[in-house]
C-alpha cells in the first residue's frame, strides 16, 4: 500500500464517516431546520473529501480538474438548495420543534 493509496483510503473514510453522521443527523434531529443544517453542511463536506481522494488517487490533470470542478459546483448549489427548501418550509408553516427558544423570523414576513 503505497502512500497514495493510504492517503486515498484515509480521505475516503473521512468522507464516508461524514456521510454516516449526516444520515444519523437527518434521522435523529427534532425538526426540519436543524436536520437541514446537518445534512447540507456535513454531506457536502463528505463528498468534498471523497472527491479530494479521487484527485489524489488519479493524479491526472483532466480528472483532478473535473473533481475540483464538481466540488466547487457542489459548494455553489448546496447552500442555495438548502435556502430554497428552508424558505418554502417556513412559509408553508412547518413548525419549529418545542425545544426551540425563539423564532427570530416571526413577524418579518407577511405570512398569508
Amino acid at each position: 500500500m503505497i502512500l497514495r493509496d493510504i492517503v486515498t483510503i484515509v480521505l475516503i473514510f473521512i468522507g464516508t464517516s461524514f456521510m454516516v453522521i449526516a444520515g444519523i443527523g437527518v434521522l435523529r434531529m427534532p425538526d426540519l431546520y436543524i436536520r437541514m443544517s446537518a445534512t447540507t453542511k456535513v454531506a457536502t463536506m463528505g463528498v468534498g473529501s471523497i472527491l479530494l481522494a479521487i484527485a489524489v488517487y488519479f493524479q491526472e490533470l483532466g480528472i483532478t480538474s473535473r473533481a475540483l470542478a464538481t466540488v466547487a459546483f457542489l459548494l455553489l448549489t448546496a447552500p442555495v438548495a438548502a435556502h430554497m427548501i428552508a424558505r418554502a418550509a417556513y412559509f408553508t408553516g412547518v413548525p419549529l420543534c418545542n425545544l426551540s427558544i425563539a423564532d427570530e423570523l416571526k413577524g418579518h414576513y407577511d405570512l398569508r
Binding site: 459546483f73 455553489l76 435556502h83
Partner: peptide, 17 residues
C-alpha cells in the same frame, strides 16, 4: 415569490451547465 438568492445563483450555474 422569486427568491433573489436563487436567481443570482442561477446566473452563475446556468453558463456552467
Amino acid at each position: 415569490m422569486v427568491s433573489l438568492i436563487l436567481s443570482t445563483a442561477v446566473r452563475y450555474i446556468f453558463p456552467l451547465q
